[in-house]
Simulated assay, not measured.
Amino acid sequence: MTQPDSPATVVIYSGGMDSYTVLHRALREGRRVHALSFDYGQRHARELEVARRVCQRLGMPHQVVDITAIHGLIDASALTDASRTLPEADYEETSLQDTVVPNRNMILLSLAIAKAVNIGADRVDYGAHGGDHVLYPDCRPEFVAAMQAVAGLAHFTPIAVHAPYLHHDKTAILADGLAMGLDYAETWTCYRGEALACGRCGSCRERLAAFAANGVRDPLSYSQRPDSHADSQHSSSGATDQQPDPAVSSAQGSATGDH
């Protein structure tokens, strides 16, 4: 259990599976976690809603920061401009450059570092991972090292910039989360904010591939998923994907952890 005098960490928490795993990893380290989410004018608020529910369940401090005033500065992306068509493909530089939000992580990290200084935390955590290195410059080791250098100079008290999965891909992140017994029904990954995840966008496809590589079934419902019939077909027959299948339950039940 976290102690009042435990070191504090600010976790940039989007509500997606990577930041969800980072958040729980910090908790398992015994840190006092302050979750920080951002509304920067993204196409939908599903991830933010999921983040709120998780933090409420955990009884964790959670702040959603409205920075929509900067939307006009970062709207050259399919994730922030609803008039643009969302790419439906695996992550490749040629097809998914339109999902890059200009300078997003530098902006969010800068604000999270300020929050850390303000509350006396010594670390900021975020979910950059190796699978993003080709497409997203602000998830690469060189960027993290540069931000770490700046965070050590910008204030009287240096703040550590911690990206625990910087050299791991989403398959490894999921494996770590499953070993912690985490329930990924508490996350949202899809670029669309519809009732069901689409199963077609790059984010959905990468997520589903990570579950397949770990030999478990994603507990989220999809309108179309490559690893099975469409969830709508399951629903019409009375079945549901809202709960993990036995393989997921087995993996989670055999894991150690207090989640």
Rank of each mutant, 00 (worst) to 15 (best):
L178E: 02
Y91L: 15
V161S: 03
G59R: 08
D138R: 02
A121I: 09
L135V: 11
L166V: 06
R52N: 04
F143C: 03
V144L: 06
A210N: 05
A114H: 05
D138Y: 05
S254D: 01
A35K: 07
A82P: 09
D75Y: 01
E49I: 12
Q233W: 13
C198P: 02
G30Q: 09
G202E: 11
V124C: 10
E93M: 12
I67P: 00
D75N: 15
G152R: 06
P137E: 00
L73V: 10
N118K: 14
G15D: 06
T256M: 13
L196W: 07
G131Q: 10
A8H: 09
C55V: 08
D176A: 13
Q148D: 12
G253C: 10
H167I: 01
Y136D: 09
L96R: 04
K170R: 11
Q3W: 00
G72P: 07
I70E: 02
L48R: 08
E29A: 13
M147S: 11
R46K: 14
A154Q: 01
S232M: 10
H129E: 05
H168D: 14
E88M: 14
V54Y: 00
S203C: 04
A197D: 02
A121F: 03
E142K: 09
H155R: 07
L108F: 10
A185F: 01
W188K: 03
H62L: 09
P219L: 01
P246F: 08
V216A: 10
D125F: 14
G131S: 08
T240V: 07
I107D: 03
H168G: 04
E49G: 15
Q56P: 01
F38K: 00
S221A: 12
K115P: 02
D218Y: 03
D241L: 13
L182R: 06
T2Y: 05
V117E: 12
A163S: 15
E29S: 10
L86S: 07
V150E: 00
Y165R: 01
R225K: 05
P244Q: 06
Y184A: 07
M17Q: 14
C190D: 02
R43Q: 10
R25W: 08
S235C: 12
H24Q: 04
A145P: 03
P61L: 09
V22L: 08
S250K: 11
T99R: 04
L208I: 15
T94A: 15
C204M: 02
K170N: 09
D245G: 14
A213L: 06
A35R: 01
A112R: 03
A114E: 09
M60A: 07
H167C: 05
Q233D: 13
Q242H: 12
L196R: 12
R53G: 09
Q56R: 15
T171H: 09
V216W: 04
P61T: 00
L48S: 08
Q148W: 05
S6C: 01
M180R: 12
R52E: 13
G127I: 11
